[in-house]
Design a protein around this nucleic acid. Structure first.
Lengths: 106, 106
DNA sequence: GCGTATTGCTACAATAACTGTAGCAAAGGA
DNA sequence: TCCTTTGCTACAGTTATTGTAGCAATACGC
């Protein structure tokens, strides 16, 4: 599987409507979950995998690459993945989902 | 492919953490996009497909079933899919993504 | 320096998800 | 009656994702 840049291959990114590209990127498996799990402190790739219910490292790595190219996630110098400033903002925008989910299935 | 209930098959739904189930449901292809496209007036299945960049009717139908079972989407009596009250609330929670996307790729 | 453990990351075959095209039955006009 | 649209399905082909294993590099204690 070819590695691909986030803003070049994302469905809808050529429509000129950024929201479509974003919805597509976030609509890939584990994207939302990864951002969610990184909302607190940075995690190593292994810790992230554990947090993500032992998801396949193949996809996690692919998603991390995409999220990094999108500018939401970064790999710290001392190792460990964390959110960028932009990523933190993004995470904030769907943080209310937490409360919503509680009411939905709580 | 077997049809499945949203809250029974969603990854993470058995962890007792509703947010995981919600993130998984929304992390399936076209889920977010469908909710987004229905944010205004109800759309017929064909109109929705057009809005969703001619996505395959197979997945759209599957997603619509899941979203209906989750209580976010409903099929009106006169035809056409629309958001439920709950679905409208959900849509509101990630509506700020629009502005974020503009800043991200605008 | 030597083993040991961790890091980020990759290979690869098996499986599940998604696509694209075609078309169905039912309902509603004209 | 014929034509159109509705929601929905079949099915083969293609991608995406899974699960297991393991790599090179870095850092530990000894």
């Amino acid at each position: 599987m070819a590695k691909q840049a986030a803003s070049g291959s994302v469905r809808g990114s050529r429509t000129g409507r950024p929201i479509m590209a974003l919805l597509d990127l976030l609509g890939r498996r584990w994207s939302l979950r990864i951002l969610w799990e990184l909302r607190g402190e940075p995690l190593t790739s292994r810790a992230l995998r554990t947090a993500c219910d032992e998801a396949s490292p193949t996809v996690l790595q692919l998603r991390l690459t995409e999220l990094r190219e999108a500018g939401f996630v970064e790999l710290g110098e001392g190792g460990g993945y964390g959110l960028t400033l932009l990523g933190r903002e993004l995470c904030e925008t769907f943080m209310p989902l937490h409360r919503f989910a509680e009411r939905w299935q709580g």
